[in-house]
Amino acid sequence: MIGKLIRTDFMKIRRKGIWFLTVLGPFGVVALQMVNYGLRKDWFIQQDIYSWFYYIRNVIAFTPFALILGIVILTSFMASIENETNAWKQVIALPVTKWGVYLSKYTTLAILLVVSTCLLTLFSLGFGMFLGLDGGIPYLDLIKYCFYTFFASLPVLGLQLWVALVSKNQGIPITLGIFGVILSYMAYFLPDWLIWKWPSLDNQWDEPIINVCLGLAVGLAIYLVGMIDFMRRDVK
């Protein structure tokens, strides 16, 4: 059943520009580095930081911001597809479970974000190779940091999806989302327990893996709370 639901969800996002955004996000992040390295290449060389290590740092500095913005936009899009003509009543009156419907929306978004993350890895790799940075190409680090950011942002995905799916007024999730984006932008100043800080992979122990574990655990918890709340609600 879940497979069928996910396939219908992918049908529903056709022609909505969602795939375009999925590609635009990672492209934008790398494009910022194009500007960065285009303008300051000499300075990087001068400072002796023209290396893969610093390049990856630069890329993942902008990723949380883009990823959270992407999550906000995609979840809201996803909800608006069903909200627009209140198609919920049609979907839920089909022989499907409500948790299945919720899981399908979540999975569809997760797949889109994984595609984005893969693209980010590829684009970063491509531009890095184009720059001819110093040292060997750290494939593993590149993949690791891109996906760490994704896993650490799962709680935000869970929260945004929950709020977007249960709000009739999409102004609410968008407002929450904008706050999230701003918070993620100043992640450095945030306390460690705030979920918007986690995608920055920064914490007082300097162990990014902690953010990943927290992201997975809390992400699952928020997902479950959202799903149960969605199941409990009447479809108007």
Partner: peptide, 16 residues
Amino acid sequence: YPHLTAYENLETIRKI
């Protein structure tokens, strides 16, 4: 779903 055709609209239900 206004952005889908009549056929696609029915297809989303038929699949289920």
